[in-house]
Amino acid sequence: MLEAVMVKRLRDFTLDFALTVQPGEIMVLMGGNGSGKSTTLNIISGLIEADTATITLNNQCLCRTKDDVDVPVEDRRIGYVLQNSAVFPCMTVRDNVAFGLRARHIGRSVIAERVALWMDRMHIGDLADVKAGNLSGGQKQRVALARALVIEPGLLMMDEPFTALDVESTQAVKDLTRRFVKKIQIPCIVVTHRVTDSTDIGDRACVLCQGRKEWEGIPSEMPEICSVCHCK
């Protein structure tokens, strides 16, 4: 389970936000541009330092500013998938998926086994020796998802992962994400600006406006328009 409480003074407002995500649950985080969605993910991952925060993942304290607890990014066991996939274009699919494991100095035989498993699960095994720069957008997102999950994370976070994909690829990535979040029972946060994404993939949704929670509930019951920042 993820439990996070954070405060971060930004240029135009102060992010003051708390959320809880259960194992196997997909929380969709929505809001207008600049509402604090990506900042929230970056604070949880450790890429941005909050003014004050307490973040606990699966009973491990990742951050507690009042006690100077701040687990390094590489030790937080968080899988992070970005909008542009962030694959290494000159590396093969196999090497892209293996990247996080090699950074953790895991043995070669274990890496080979886990990489093969996740490439197969993401239906990219036949692309193992293809340079990632030659893949389609949907294939790149599958590579990014495999790379995020192969490290056996305690949390999966995805920041606008469907924006650059066509309809068919979008549905495939949504289906794969739901399947494996449920299968391995990890909490998951998906940032998106599209209501259809929240109803397709989310168990719960939360709308952020100017750094504060405007609404939270079942995605199908989300208000059509936000009363504060008018995000759709």
Rank of each mutant, 00 (worst) to 15 (best):
D203S: 02
R108N: 12
V87W: 01
D129M: 11
E3R: 15
V167Q: 14
C188Y: 09
L135D: 01
N134M: 12
Q139K: 10
L41S: 05
R142Q: 02
T39P: 07
G154D: 15
S109H: 11
C229H: 03
T56G: 07
S169T: 09
D159Q: 01
F13C: 03
R94H: 12
R212G: 10
A172P: 03
N42V: 06
E221A: 14
R204A: 02
A146R: 08
G125R: 13
A116E: 13
T54R: 15
N96R: 09
V7H: 13
I48S: 10
V5A: 14
N96W: 13
V71L: 15
L145S: 02
S227V: 06
L165R: 03
M1L: 11
V5W: 12
R102M: 06
G211A: 07
C90R: 14
I151S: 04
T92K: 04
S169F: 11
L156I: 13
A18F: 01
R212P: 13
L10C: 00
L208Y: 01
S198N: 00
E224M: 11
M6G: 03
L41Y: 07
S136V: 00
P219T: 02
I189T: 04
P187T: 11
L156A: 00
I184P: 00
C63S: 12
F99Y: 15
K232Y: 14
Q139G: 09
P223H: 08
P223L: 02
D75M: 05
I111A: 06
D12S: 10
D203K: 11
R77P: 00
D70G: 04
A103R: 15
L149M: 10
R102F: 02
V190S: 10
G34S: 08
R9Q: 13
I218R: 04
D159C: 05
A53W: 08
V191W: 15
G202P: 10
L145T: 05
P187C: 01
R114A: 05
F88D: 05
M30V: 01
M122Y: 05
I44T: 08
V69A: 14
G107Y: 02
V5R: 13
D75T: 02
E113Y: 07
R194M: 12
C188R: 06
Q171G: 12
A146F: 15
E152T: 14
R179T: 14
A98K: 03
G217A: 08
R11M: 04
E49Q: 15
E3Q: 14
F88Q: 07
N134Q: 14
E25K: 04
R104T: 03
A98P: 13
R179D: 09
S45A: 14
F180V: 12
P219W: 11
T192L: 05
V110K: 14
W118F: 13
V21S: 06
P89A: 06
G100N: 04
V130E: 15
M157I: 12
V73W: 04
T52V: 15
V228G: 00
L41K: 05
P223M: 01
I44F: 01
R102C: 01
I218Q: 09
P89H: 07
T163A: 15
Q171T: 12
N58A: 14
D75A: 08
E216I: 10
L127F: 06
R9H: 10
Q22V: 00
V173L: 13
L82S: 12
G46K: 10
M30T: 04
L101Y: 02
M27I: 07
